[in-house]
Design a protein around this nucleic acid. Structure first.
Lengths: 151, 151
DNA sequence: TTATTATTTGTTAATGATTATCATTAGTTT
DNA sequence: AAACTAATGATAATCATTAACAAATAATAA
């Protein structure tokens, strides 16, 4: 955790931004709740527990900044709020979601499923791929079981 | 075109909705501008040209309805507005996008690229896939050429 | 047909997420 | 310390979307 923060700090400095206490508090929340697809409001409330003086706008600004630096992914499940996910280090941007249409649960897949597909896109469409977003909508295991039980 | 409208009409009736003139006008705009990833506001302005009395809320209502009936896909490129795409008939929901990070152009791919991947998801995660969204972010051919010319 | 009921509409107001403004504070540089 | 810059918190503004509601339209029953 401290190592990760140290690296983010360096990334910020490289662009002549500072890791202020507010920004650090925000990053810490993101690190602690890595799997949770938090909204800006969620993050704001969590940061507030530790740093009560922080303002909502600062959280938005920080998330925007981290998003530009590719430290977080700003994602959207179509429910009217943006959610922010810390990128895994290394195989960073391959990061897919399974959204259950019944219960709303979101599962995460870090494995890269699209290596071949990306190659195809680059070859056949001459489109230079930098990133991708892949979301599956369907029925999660639990809801399938629940549905079977009810029939 | 008329055939398509006829079918949508039947689909609506099957759920005891009517194809009102306002709804029909909206569908016609969607048919005419099939490739354009229009926002609700865009669609509203286009419908207004032909049916000036229509209200924005009705357009939203119609799009929501068509979305429920899976006639259109409500998609989101992360720019704060929802966009609405008429589904291709038949191989309906396989419908991907290439979004250029420089000029913002959106190209569309109708080919299904994910057959194998979907199988994998269903097998390994026991997640029953109903639909998916796949968007690539990168540099389009034109911008690549422009960049090469400038260097 | 006429009365009744249910849908759909247009207008307008409300909502809610995000962004802009701006005075204040903290950090740097000289 | 003085001068300058960057970042912050509070709040107002913006903008897409939704809700409320009265009027219009269509469907149904009598």
């Amino acid at each position: 955790m401290e190592h990760r923060i140290e690296r983010i700090k360096k990334q910020l400095h490289a662009q002549s931004y500072k890791l202020t206490p507010q920004r650090e508090a925000t990053v810490r929340v993101l690190l602690e709740r890595e799997e949770d697809h938090l909204s800006a409001e969620d993050i704001y409330l969590l940061v507030k527990e530790k740093a009560p003086e922080i303002g909502l706008a600062t959280v938005y600004r920080t998330l925007e900044l981290l998003s530009e630096l590719k430290v977080v992914d700003k994602i959207n499940f179509g429910d009217g709020v943006s959610r922010y996910d810390l990128r895994k280090e290394g195989a960073a941007h391959f990061h897919h979601h399974l959204v259950c249409m019944e219960c709303g649960a979101v599962e995460e897949i870090v494995e890269d499923l699209l290596e071949d597909v990306e190659k195809k896109i680059e070859d056949e469409w001459q489109f230079q791929v930098k990133d991708h977003r892949l979301t599956f909508h369907g029925i999660c295991r639990k809801c399938q079981q629940k549905n079977n039980a009810n029939n």
